[in-house]
Design a binder for these strands. Structure first.
Length: 605
RNA sequence: GGAGCCGUGGUGUAGUCGGUUAACACGCCGGCCUGUCAAGCCGGAGAUCGCGGGUUCAAGUCCCGUCGGUUCCGCCA
């Protein structure tokens, strides 16, 4: 049998237009849908570029016969003529709807089993179980929404690289097999075969390497860096993720902020055509907490918190009075028109506050006859008037109060604020509200370890004016760090680094690290700093989160080709899995007895 | 480690106060059909309700446990 004539694809399905009429084209793609009229067969044919209607007439001979056997997701090649559709037969819902391809020849390149879930319904989109989608991600990916997200991710990466290239940055790859470091997240470990009993760690970030690159004189570094953190997952957290990692020499905070703002401007313009305009607003950490109860406030809506501690200093309500007396605060929030809340909805608010550790949440409804509240009988006219003034209460408003230690009260009410923002539909979609949060504390107290730990990381420079506090009151010292926040998501953060040995040693001391420990863990960096480290600083931005927000998605899994489930497994490959005894032996590893349980089901069931 | 929600043919859902033949749409298979585009019409196959235990005359439904998914807290920049 003679070898079949070789066909070369000439066009993308979605690219064909009336201007192409009369041309003979060769298309290759998937069968999205077949409409068989007996004497006439329509195939919606799909490739990455889009969809086009292919018509098979009975006079097409073999092609017509084969077309009768086509099923969804068959891979086919079609030779035919681009033809303007008959008058009145155009489909305005299709980019190619003015034309169709009249088929002359058809080849089935590969048949397909019936997909386990619909790839195209034609109707309203129905959510398919995510595990099923992930197990058959290669099918899920054929859906236009997923293709859009993946392509958007590519565009964002391209825009990022283009931007940094224009700005004179050098992309440098840093090791994936590196050294475990203390501080920060739990490491993923990789056993060394050559060095029995020793382990590499996958990088939580290229932090130390990028600083070494500065010592190395690269001056401007960036990388789309893969990072690994063995911590529990969230909708916006994966065990492996990508960050836009940046470091610059001979700069100060303003240079990093300016560069990052212009990066955002470029990426948003190049990907979704949205104009964002620097400079972005800035809040100090303290102000962000005070007004929004969060270090990553969503400032797309108001509903700000107000400190009403003084109103209740001599309050008859014992819990409030006691909280104030013991140095705590009362934080308040006015939910306009919240008086219409049902008792059930009010209880729900109390419950929400409870999940964030609130001991209670007091609500006060302001209505015509006066106020309604579980603590109404304890409140004096003076106190109510003061509340009205402080919170600018109007008739029909709902005031929510949390009494606790300042930080706790703010955080709880900040969460209640977010909940209310969603519930009252106060959050404008399609809005991108960037914000810098600056002047973070340098340290925070770790109750478990009974010592200070770095809020950012141990190489973060203190504010010059707070240097003296390092040795006297570390808790009050602030750092030259900055977080970029977008719509309530922490997009990234960075800092100006310490490049002088003397300050670095004082930091280690405040962290409770001995000279020996510091040498053991970071000796190579400290040594490098002795060879002429330039002043430097940088930032790292969550690339997955950024793409998620660009795509308008609620989970970064929608923007990652092959993400993991919340329990850090991959339904497609079955990872993680067991390995052979031989592999373990080579690595000098013995697995401790596992709690016996049912074997996990195979990937193919 | 903890809390909430979800789990019913291939997919998405319904299933009331526990009541005996588990419903609907899409998909799938077969037939008819020359202008559809969520094609149409006719016929058919397909689920013992995630799993285990318990309560009951009777469990998809109630209870306990467990597994998986998801959201959140803790954890994590």
């Amino acid at each position: 049998m003679a070898a079949a004539e070789k066909w070369t694809r000439t066009d993308g399905c979605g690219a064909l237009r009336p201007a192409n009429c009369g041309r003979t084209v060769t298309l290759m793609g998937w069968v999205q849908r077949r409409r068989d009229h007996g004497g006439l067969i329509f195939i919606d044919m799909r490739d990455r570029s889009g969809v086009v209607q292919v018509v098979f007439n009975p006079d097409a001979g073999d092609a017509f016969a084969v077309a009768e056997s086509l099923r969804n997701e068959y891979v086919i090649a079609v030779k035919g003529t681009v033809t303007r559709r008959l008058e009145g037969m155009e489909n305005p819902d299709l980019a190619t709807g003015e034309i169709e391809v009249v088929a002359e020849e058809l080849r089935v390149l590969n048949p397909s089993r019936t997909p386990p879930f619909p790839i195209y319904t034609g109707g309203p989109l129905k959510e398919v179980d995510e595990t099923l989608r992930l197990r058959y991600r290669y099918l899920d990916m054929r859906r236009p929404e997923m293709q859009r997200n993946i392509i958007l991710r590519h565009r964002a990466a391209k825009a990022t690289r283009d931007f940094f290239d224009r700005e004179g940055f050098i992309e440098v790859e840093t090791p994936m097999l590196t050294r475990s470091t203390p501080e920060g997240a739990r490491d993923f470990l990789v056993p060394s075969r050559v060095h029995p009993g020793e382990f590499f760690a996958l990088p939580q970030s290229p932090q130390l390497f990028k600083q070494l690159l500065m010592v190395g004189g690269l001056e401007r570094y960036f990388q789309l860096a893969r990072c690994f953190r063995d911590e529990d997952l969230r909708a916006d957290r994966q065990p492996e993720f990508t960050q836009i990692d940046v470091e610059m020499s001979f700069i100060d905070r303003e240079d990093i902020i300016d560069t990052t703002e212009r990066l955002m401007q470029a990426v948003f313009a190049d990907t979704i055509g949205v104009e964002v305009t620097p400079p972005f607003p800035r809040l100090s950490y303290r102000e962000a907490m005070a007004r929004f109860g969060s270090d990553k406030p969503d400032i797309r809506f108001g509903l700000e918190l107000v400190d009403v501690t003084e109103v209740f200093r001599d309050c008859q309500f014992k819990i409030f009075a006691r909280t104030v007396a013991s140095g705590g605060t009362i934080q308040g929030l006015n939910a306009p028109k919240g008086a219409s809340f049902t008792r059930r909805e009010l209880d729900e608010l109390v419950e929400v506050a409870g999940t964030y550790g609130a001991k209670g949440l007091v609500w006060i409804v302001f209505e015509d006859g006066g106020i309604r509240s579980p603590i109404a009988k304890f409140l004096s006219e003076t106190e109510i008037d003061a509340l009205k003034t402080r919170l600018q209460v109007k008739m029909g408003d709902l005031v929510l109060l949390v009494a606790d230690e300042r930080q706790a009260a703010l955080e709880i009410l900040g969460q209640v604020r977010l909940f209310l923002g969603r519930k009252l539909d106060l959050i404008p979609k399609d809005k991108f509200s960037f914000l810098w949060v600056v002047d973070f504390p340098l340290f925070e107290w770790d109750e478990e370890e009974k010592r200070f730990v770095s809020v950012h990381h141990p190489f973060t420079s203190p504010l010059d004016e707070d240097l003296a506090l390092l040795d006297t009151e570390p808790a009050l010292a602030r750092s030259k760090s900055y977080d970029l926040v977008l719509n309530g998501y922490e997009l990234g953060g960075g800092s100006i680094r310490i490049h002088r040995r003397e300050i670095q040693e004082r930091i280690f001391k405040a962290l409770g690290l001995t000279e020996a420990e510091a040498q053991d863990k970071f000796g190579f960096l400290l040594e490098a700093f002795e060879y002429g480290a330039p002043p430097h600083g940088g930032i790292a931005l969550g690339f997955d989160r950024m793409v998620m927000l660009l795509a308008g998605q609620g989970s970064i899994r929608e923007c990652i080709a092959f993400p993991k489930t919340q329990r850090a497994t991959c339904p497609l490959t079955g990872a993680p899995g067991s390995v052979s005894p031989r592999q373990l032996e080579e690595l000098s590893i013995r697995v401790a007895a596992l709690p016996s349980g049912p074997e996990k089901p195979d990937a193919e069931g």
